[in-house]
Every structure is written in structure tokens, then in C-alpha cells.
Design a protein around this nucleic acid. Sequence first.
DNA 1: GCCAACGTTGGC
DNA 2: GCCAACGTTGGC
Length: 151
Amino acid sequence: MAYWLLKSEPDCYSIDDQERDGANVWDGCRNYTVRNFFRDQMNEGDQGFFYHSSCEPPGIVGIVEVASGPVPDPTQFDPNSEYYDPKSSKEDPRWITREIKFVRKLPRQITLAELRQTPGLESMAVLQKGQRLSVMPVTDEEWTRVLQMVE
DNA sequence: GCCAACGTTGGC
DNA sequence: GCCAACGTTGGC
């Protein structure tokens, strides 16, 4: 059992979209570190923070759960998709992801600025300078500490 | 296999 | 819109 933080731009796919869809394939990610998290590190049943990025204000808005084993990202095979990858094949798919399902919204958003001000979260991956991964690990301690902020 | 150029992310 | 950080690409 592990915890994660998944970033999404709300203009593109928000927590409300996730709530409406329930479960869906987390597609479109084209970063090898993130691919490896999806393929090798996640476990079905792991939970994650749903984080709104590139918006005002950025921050954590909900909780989601890893709802499948590793699956190929279908958009890599679709020539009409902006995420189409002609170098990938169905025999040896390059981009692996998971189904992600909605668990709940937080009672209120926890902004990035708040996270930065919270003692105990100094080492949290999302707060580190220069990190830009769209999926990042969260420790047990960080998970608990963040949830305390909205209790 | 090195590394410069380029592209992307995402907070500010 | 700016720009720092850093991943990816491609020439050599």
C-alpha cells in the first residue's frame, strides 16, 4: 500500500470530471519516470491526492484510488490523438498507465501555498524546487499530515 | 555515448 | 507572459 499525488490541469480534467466518470484510464502522460511509477510501483488499491495544477490556486482537491493493474495507454495507438506515439506498438507498448477511480473530494481545497507553510511537509515531493512530474510518491506521514489539515 | 539545442512544465 | 528546471532528441 502506497500513496501518490496525481496532477491534472482542471481546464483539461478536473476532480469534478473524475467524480462524473467514476473510473477511467489516466491517459496522456509521456514521461518515463511516471510511466515506471504506473507500471512498476503502483499497487491496485493505492490511494492518491488529486492535484489541480496550472490554475489559480494550485492544490489538492480530492482523493482517488488505483483501480487496475498496469494497462497500455490507448491514446498512444490513436493517430487522431494528440498523444499518438508512432514509435509505440501494441506488441510492445511504450506508455503504461492505470485506471484511476474517484474516491471523494476534500471538504475544501488545500492550496500549494498552504502545503508550503505546513510543518512536517518540507520533504514532500510536490514542494521540491524543479520537480515537474505529473505523478509523485507521497509518504504515509505526508498523507496523514495533509489529511489532518482538513479535519 | 556525449552534449547542445530544444521543448515542456508549471509556479509566479 | 516569464523563466527556471529538466527531460528528450539528434548530430557527431
